[in-house]
């Protein structure tokens, strides 16, 4: 057992409100990212605010709230965080990103069928044939509604065809 792990286990024992604790950590992470990114924006003054004033003020507030949440979670009791199921979420998120990558070069039909098959893969009781049929049907429906009837600017087929 490494020293870090011992420290972590100790901490974990003292965290009495895990939901608050992790919310606090999440807020601090966002605040830190925001304030780091906002370093380059000029602050201006309260009278003539620059583009950095609001982000810095918000980032500071968010960080402070996060810190209070973290500290409080060590003392006030709270609920545990439910189990995080990484797999279905990451599969679906990947599917969404794939759609973004594929749509412009490959067109709506391919991109939509792929994202729906990937998503179906995330479900426990999906049936392959059914998923394919649904994907094809929805792709046809979407082309009909969004592209033909509503004339939204979506490419249907791969651009190299």
């Amino acid at each position: 057992m490494t020293a870090a792990r011992v420290l972590w286990l100790n901490c974990r024992m003292t965290i009495r409100a895990p939901k608050d604790f992790w919310s606090g950590i999440m807020f601090i992470a966002f605040a830190a990212t925001a304030m780091l990114a906002a370093r380059g924006y000029s602050l201006g003054s309260a009278g003539k605010m620059g583009p950095g004033y609001f982000p810095m003020a918000l980032g500071g507030t968010l960080g402070l709230i996060g810190a209070i949440l973290v500290v409080r979670s060590l003392f006030a009791p709270g609920e545990p965080v439910g189990r995080i199921h990484v797999l279905p979420l990451s599969i679906i998120a990947t599917g969404v990103a794939l759609f973004g990558i594929m749509l412009e070069p490959l067109g709506l039909v391919v991109a939509l069928i792929v994202v729906m098959l990937v998503a179906a893969f995330a479900g426990r009781d999906s049936r392959p044939l059914e998923a394919v049929a649904l994907a094809v049907a929805l792709a046809a429906f979407s082309v009909g509604i969004f592209v033909v009837a509503l004339r939204l600017p979506l490419p249907i087929w791969p651009s190299f065809l």
């Binding site: 973004g100 179906a120 479900g123 059914e130 969004f146």
Partner: peptide, 29 residues
Amino acid sequence: RLLFPAIVGFCCIGAYATNSNATDLFVMA
């Protein structure tokens, strides 16, 4: 099991069609 892939698919179309901007899909992910 049939509804959720359809929801994901529609969300993808919706996110793209709003601005024709592929970045919106990564934002959504």
